[in-house]
Every structure is written in structure tokens, then in C-alpha cells.
Nucleic acid binder design. Sequence first.
DNA 1: ACAAAAGTGTTGGAGATACACCCATGA
DNA 2: TCATGGGTGTATCTCCAACACTTTTGT
Lengths: 233, 233
Amino acid sequence: MDVSVDCALFGFDGEALKLLLIRQKTAQCGPISEAELQMALPGDFVNDSESLDSAAGRVLHELTGLHDVYLKQFHAFGDPERVKGLKDQQWLRTFREHPENRVMTVAYFGLVSLHDHEPTPSSFAGEAEWTDVDGLPDLAFDHDDIASLALTTLREQLESKHIGFEMLPKKFTLRQLQSLHEIVLDKKLDKRNFRKNVKRMDHVVPLDEKEEGVLHKPAQLFTFDANLTTTDS
Amino acid sequence: MDVSVDCALFGFDGEALKLLLIRQKTAQCGPISEAELQMALPGDFVNDSESLDSAAGRVLHELTGLHDVYLKQFHAFGDPERVKGLKDQQWLRTFREHPENRVMTVAYFGLVSLHDHEPTPSSFAGEAEWTDVDGLPDLAFDHDDIASLALTTLREQLESKHIGFEMLPKKFTLRQLQSLHEIVLDKKLDKRNFRKNVKRMDHVVPLDEKEEGVLHKPAQLFTFDANLTTTDS
DNA sequence: ACAAAAGTGTTGGAGATACACCCATGA
DNA sequence: TCATGGGTGTATCTCCAACACTTTTGT
């Protein structure tokens, strides 16, 4: 059986939660309209000598140029028919040696800051795009399921594992942190209570720096100190 | 790459938490002492046409004769060297066609009642045994890691997903439920507070029946009604 | 009668929620 | 001076933890 990894990479641009998707390459021949081209989560086969985590890290690096971002396995998908759809097979035939092979995939979700680094994909340049999580298109294979479970997992772990920071710039304001939580959890939070909670987290440290270039009172900047994280997987 | 499933089946006998392990079959030739024989979690290759969940269910059924027990995937293990230990290879050579192949495994944990059904393994009869989770032996392959993560996962989900009932008889007393929690979580719980919490769970329903054959005041029996479970994965 | 576990309420503290005003900055 | 978001404290309520005695049964 073939084994792949697929990555659901989430990013936050201050406004909305984004997911990195790749678009099927236009087949050189044949009149396929743009709308016909499927989108999917980035993924690749696991190489002979690499671990699953390394494979996921490699896919991520090839797409974003980033190392060392938060990346966690969350589920394996192994339905025998998961790549057997008509469109799925058409796509696979354009680049796979044995598109009819059964392939199971280990899915990872990752968190990327869209602030510090330009989200421009590197080696896959042009075919990858950040898409709003609200109103995702239908995805190829079983990637709708994967994306949906990735989002659920992100929601569950956002608070319990304090991983929100991974989607923010190194220096961030409390307002940014709060919007992120509000958007991911899809509910409004009370500003004062939120700040009270954050102040209790010893790994969110205030800096002697303020926001610049804003047309209102500049906010204090904070950063994330990974020294002591209470909850680890 | 070969793909297998491994199952960490937990059971509770009223006293201790048990894990189902299989023992390496004695090689017909060669003077290998009992102590040299390794133990491992039950597992098997995933068949061509079955899903991962089905494969795990099949392994479980072959071992215990049970259907429909709680069984959940919790992690995929794919280190390239995970079956390459010396003893691991010796064992694999006794029954695998290509023992040197890389094999990744999708690990499941399952919960079994040791009360209602005799824990006697069926088709693997004789080679499987329920072992105390305290003081597990060293296991073959990376099964120490798998068992350890399975236990962590069980602890995390015991309360949040209300799955303790799966390890109790259909009719159980609150004392049994509490001991189970105390043993899994490894901490003493307050009887009154515990019962208060249980009474809030609408899926634990009291029966018009009492314990029998005990040399003290007989306790009321409860059962588990799966109609409305608040948390699902 | 005795042993052994079943069963039952109250109190105090900690943490969560709800809520409104003044402040600093840039235009 | 105005518009915009930054920043702050208090009262209430709910949830959790701690704690001891009476009841029912079998021997």
C-alpha cells in the first residue's frame, strides 16, 4: 500500500482563518475549464527512509519555505476507496506512476504565521493559495473530511495547548490574539476576561515595545516564550 | 510500504487495569527460554479491501470474539526503523514473508469489559494474555511507545468522552465506576462528589435492580444508555 | 451485634461571567 | 477635536472540593 502525508496548514491574516490549498495543474492538452480543476490539501508520498513527521515537515518546507512550525499528526485516513473517485483518478493520472494504487494518508495540521513571512509558496510556487476557511470549495479525494477534522482538532487544541501564538507574528498585540481566538472558536469573547486569562499564562511576556503606524492608541506588544509550556502531547 | 494496525485493548477486572498482550510463539527448533520470548500488542496487516477501522475491528474480534466494542484510532507510528531491532527481526522471520520490509502501523485503543464476557481469547487462544498495566514487561518493536501513548489517551478521554462504561459490565454499581476511574486516573476520588457528577450525566440510568450475593448492603445497579452522548469524535 | 459498603447535604473558595468608562494616539 | 481601539476593576454566580454520619444487608 502506498503511504502519504497530507498537511492542513492554517494561517491567520488578522481577518480570517486561511487554509493552504493546491490547485490541480492544468493538463497540457484538453479543454478543462478552471472551474473543473480540483483543489486539495498539499501532500506527498513518504520516502523510504524518512519518518512520517519528517515527511510532513518536508511537504511544509517545500510549500512555504518554513522550518520549525507547529505541525502535529492528527489522524490516519485509510478508506480503500479514498482516491478512487472519477475526478481523483483523472488528476492522479497526470502525475502518478500507479494512480490506481490504494493509498492511505497520515494527516497533519500545521499553524503558520502569515505576518512575519510572506505566505508566498516556494517550490510549488503559483499552484498553492491561501483560502478562506469559511466557504472552502469541495476538495479532491477525501480532503473535505481531512480538512474538517483538522479544523475540529485545531478548535479543540487552541485553548488546551496554547497554540494560537503559532499563527501570530513574533510580536503581537492582545487584540490580535483575541481576534484569532474569536475567529477560530467562532464566538465573541469578553475583552477584560480574555486579558485576565492571558496575564495568567506565564509564557506570554510583555515587551517594552508598542505598536507603530496605527491610527489609534498603540497597543503594547507581547511575545511567546516557549520555555515553560504546561501541556504537551 | 506495509501497513498494519495494532490494538491496545484495555480491560478492567474490578481490581486493576489490564492490557491484552500476545506472546511470541515458541520457535519449534532452538532452545529459547520463556524469558527470551517477547510480548507485543496484537496487530495485523491491513487487508487490500478493508478500511483501517475494519482491520482493527477484525483483529479485536479474532482475539476476543467481541464485536462492537469501543475502538478508536489514536496515532500512526511510522519510524523507518520501528521493526528493525534484532529481536524484532528474529520474531518477524518466524511468520512474515518479508520481515525486512518497512511497516507503518495505525494504533487503536479499545475498551473491553472483563465482566460480562470471559476474557478468553478465541482464535489466538493460548498466546494472548491480560497483563496488569502496572509493571508491563518490555514489549517488542515500538510497542512500549504505543502502549504508553494509548494509556495517556485513555486517561485524557476517560472523563471528556465518558467512555469508562465500556470497561464495565452492562449493569454496574457506582462503586465499580468510581474504582475504575480511580485506577485509570491513579488518584483517589471523593465518593459524594463523584456520585453528584454521575447523576448529572443523563446517559447513566438507574435500574430497578440491586446487587446480589454481596456480604453488605447491596448497591443499586446502573446502566449506560448510548442515546445521547454529548461528546463525539 | 457486628462488619462492610451504600447512600446522602452543606459549606467555603476559586474561577468564570457580565458589565462601562477613561486614555493615548494620528489625522 | 474627533475617531479609533487600548486599557482597566468589581460584583455576582456557578462549579468544584472538602467533609461525617446513618442505613441496609449478611453472617
